[in-house]
Design a protein around this nucleic acid. Sequence first.
DNA 1: AGCACGCCGACT
DNA 2: GTCGGCGTGCTC
Length: 713
Amino acid sequence: MGSDGPDTPNGAHRVARVVLDSPLPQLDRLFDYRIPDALVDSCLPGVRVRVPLRTGNRIADAYVVETPDEGSFPGDLSAVAEVVSPVPVLAPEVWRLARAVADRAAGVASDVLRLAVPPRQVRVEKAFLARTADAAPPAVAVPAVTGYPDGVVERILEDCGRAALVAVAHPVRLPAPVPAVAVPAGVGSQPAGSAPAPAAAGTTAPDPVGTAEHGGSWVPGWARTFAEAAARTLAAEHTAILVVPDFRDLGELERAVHAMVPPERVVRFDAKQTNGQRAKSALLAGSGPVVVIGNRAAVYAPAADLGLLAIWDDGDPSFMEPRAPYVHTRDVALIRTVQSGAALLLAAHARSTDVQRLVELGWLEDVRPHRAVVPRVVPTAQQTSAEGYAAQARIPSSAWRAAREASRTGPVLVQVASPGFATGLACAECGERARCRRCGGPLGNATSGGAPQCRWCGALAAGFRCTTCGNGTLRQVGNGAQRTAEELGRAFPGTRIVVADGLRQVDEVDGRPAVVVATRGAEPATPGGYACVLLLDGERMLAREGLRVAEDVLRIWANAAARTAAGGAVYLVGIGGRLATAMVTWRLDLPASEELADRRVLHFPPAVRVATLTGTEQAVTAAVEALGDAPVGPVLGPVPVEGAKTAPGTVRAIVRFPYAHGNEVAATLKAEMIRRSSTRRAVPRGSRRRAAPTLRVRLDDLEPFTEPRPDWP
DNA sequence: AGCACGCCGACT
DNA sequence: GTCGGCGTGCTC
């Protein structure tokens, strides 16, 4: 009702409703501006604009969310100052997603937009505007989804259902990639579905593993499933978004997708891209049905008509977003598929407790592969170690014989917990663990003769003196990948030894005989898979404290075990009990289910949600009180937080609440933050330069429940 | 964030 | 009487 300006020319909308690009929670709502005549043609939903903000003659960056006929603000509207670029970069669907994600996390929508919308690239936008009309895209075949019974996965895709998919184990071979269609530059359209022209070699077809052998490439079973599901989605003219934890998974997925989808309809997002590439990917993703593949950022990719959102290995820590508002990729995917009605696939070998919860709720369908081709897992808890070298390398005799046998024909994988040589050093005299003088971190050896080095800060520790007894000599504790490799090198004379740890990344090894020693998660791919896999150090990996330890370790074992060739054997060394049973029977959902039951009793996540409140004692207490009767179980804390970066007097409390109260809790906490951030001026005189925010809220942060990884550099 | 508005103490 | 301290609130 406010705007009484001149009549609208051409019936164009005269109000731009915008979201400001500001991290202030007080400004996290929509603002109406008048669209001046000169901008009516360009000021459309999704474009970046600059708008005045009364206080201080500031001009703020913003995105147009919608352009209604009339504003809802009862007052005079300021005018949009500038349309930064006519290219719409914030799709309405992405805006809705950002709003919901921020609301779930008691966060600010513009923080989510920073994750979802790449920074502006003028050249990329110009090229996008100047692009010639596409030739009709080549037809996409409709593959069956291999390895699952009776077309269950096909049905889920068609019905836009949701499923927890137990992945197909073992590598599988795919046909050669679909050749790129040569599009005649500048010429008009091509008949749709015509025979593709011979490959234009310039495009991004990667060099697949094992292509030389049979004209096809080996990929993990899950990657084939994802590619098949994406091809079906694309054939129905919907976009598919496939999200993986890291770069190596992305490479394997890309090979699989390229075997079924023409490369010009695949859009890639990864962490190593420049801003320009990212911006280009985002524009391409939003411009028609495509297959988007990428890391966690891809879950926010624009997609006009989303048909499928799939996540591989949702338990991987890479899916924990490190930037505000810290929303896990899995949670974003849940919100997005509910909003868009797209199908959701959460696929993994091992099951996270979070997914198990959704399965038990009936929210996700539990889908297992057809006549499960599972790795043959042999637990060796009870067996005694072999003699000699094998004993040094912690390998029981049965596993030892199998590994030696297998290493004559192909690569054998040995998974260990830690990189480097010795994971730790201790005083040779009194046994006290050697620590860094600078930061107190543990000292270790990267190589056998290497200087002692801090595993946390990397400082070299020359001239060690034990702080307890004053002795100056060190003794090695624990085996790193390098040490295991050296021991195995002596034990397998003449065999090629490959070390793949955090320090030396090896993406793949060929099919010739080798012993491949890899740290957890760094296992190289090999065409056809390993004939034998040894999982060492399990006991040590399980020794850590923390809510996620067991499910993490199972996930790491399962992912390595899935790299065996069909018919190969996996030796799980030194582990018995329910985790070993789960591996042997490949029922990796059962430990998740038990774990979840325990956490229900204890009111721990993911049975409940948690809010971590940090700040001054007064602010934290007030926030806890504001939550009223939402909390489940006793509030943990407040307890003082000490640390170099925290102001003295900072406390932390953890509130647990049921999922059903999520909206209410998030809204209450956000209101509390707004109150605090506009009422916080009480800066004591003098010494303290800047008052820290009096209240910081983080939802579903598991860090307080987890011990840091002392083993990782 | 910045900036205006407004309500109490010390001053010409 | 007025000037200005900074606590409080607002930004279309």
